[in-house]
């Protein structure tokens, strides 16, 4: 798919020195939108061609082979794809775990991020400090400390067990129980809402202050301003965060990797999709099989992203809408 149009990229690069070197002259006919488009896109197109397209196409090819990383791949047709759905209960488990995670962790994360962004967009004392503090969990992301800490909070004598015990719920060790381990990872993801929050904050900052001023002069109240200015103006950023959450939570890897010690346990209860891709590809040396899984994930994410884009026509407000 990239081959067909790759010829446009060198052409665009070729234009670059001659045109941009010359002084813009009004008499000269301006470049067409097409030329400008590909000119601006040139670095990305080169990057796509050199660094991304090859590995992507190779992984597609590998998904139809038996490839152990060390010997030449052997073509097996659709066998990997058939095995995945017919003979691999762990794969189905990985799908279950991942979908549960995506549909809980992603919306909760967005909700918290938005609420905190709104809260931290007020001008109160120490706002910079608060922002930094609320971003800290996201900084700790893949650190070993998280794994140990999560045990301390959700483990046998952990804070959560103690609090629940106080209310008469005598529970167990959440983080290491097959029934609850996944929920502790959902909580971990919600807790690390910092990145989405920053993007929301940036979005809030981009809303022109004049809009609020005008509305205030017109006598609009707080709630009114929120519904009719803040929220609509923020929709492109909400949309962005939504798409990113879909993509990132389907690909969640690090939390399960560090907290389950890389195995997705106990009893595969935290076997995230990409963790299983990693286990098959690198631990079990089945890169062909892992690639097939990767491409199915691409399709799954692609469908959900497409749905988000289709829906965006109805609720996302762009200033450049014509």
């Amino acid at each position: 798919m990239t081959i067909g149009h790759s010829s446009e990229s060198p052409a665009a690069t070729g234009l670059s020195p001659s045109r941009s070197g010359a002084r813009p002259a009004r008499t000269r006919k301006p470049l067409s939108d097409n030329a400008y488009g590909y000119l601006f896109l040139a670095p990305w197109l080169v990057g796509l061609l050199v660094f991304l397209a090859g590995p992507t196409l190779v992984s597609l090819y590998l998904s139809f082979t038996d490839f152990n990383l060390l010997q030449p791949p052997k073509w097996v047709g659709a066998q990997n794809y058939i095995t995945l759905f017919s003979r691999d209960p762990r794969y189905l488990q990985a799908l279950r775990v991942t979908f549960t995670y995506v549909f809980t962790a992603a919306p909760l994360n967005l909700l918290f991020a938005l609420l905190l962004a709104l809260l931290l967009n007020t001008r109160i004392r120490g706002i910079s400090l608060y922002r930094a503090v609320y971003y800290v969990p996201s900084l700790l992301g893949g650190s070993v400390a998280i794994a140990i800490l999560w045990q301390q909070i959700f483990g046998l004598d952990g804070v959560v067990s103690q609090i629940l015990g106080f209310f008469g719920v005598h529970g167990s060790s959440w983080v290491s129980s097959p029934k609850q381990a996944l929920w502790t990872l959902v909580i971990l993801h919600v807790w690390q809402f910092g990145s989405a929050m920053i993007i929301f904050l940036a979005g809030l900052k981009q809303i022109p202050a004049e809009l609020y001023e005008a509305a205030t002069i017109d006598g609009a109240g707080k709630v009114h301003r929120f519904w009719f200015i803040t929220l609509p103006m923020l929709t492109p950023v909400i949309f962005f965060n939504l798409v990113l959450q879909i993509i990132n939570s389907f690909q969640a890897f690090t939390p399960a990797f560090i907290i389950s010690g890389g195995k997705g346990g106990p009893l595969d209860s935290t076997l995230f999709y990409t963790l299983y891709v990693y286990i098959q590809g690198f631990t079990n040396f089945r890169m062909g099989y892992a690639s097939a899984m990767g491409w199915i994930l691409l399709i799954i994410i692609g469908v959900f992203t497409a749905l988000a884009f289709l829906s965006s026509k109805y609720w996302v407000h762009y200033d450049d809408a014509r």
């Binding site: 794994a147 140990i148 045990q151 483990g155 046998l156 167990s172 060790s173 983080v175 290491s176 129980s177 907290i259 389950s260 010690g261 346990g265 106990p266």
Partner: peptide
């Protein structure tokens, strides 16, 4: 099980 599963490394 849930106590044994807490072990993520010998530490």
């Amino acid at each position: 099980g849930e106590v044994t599963a807490l072990e993520t490394g010998f530490e």
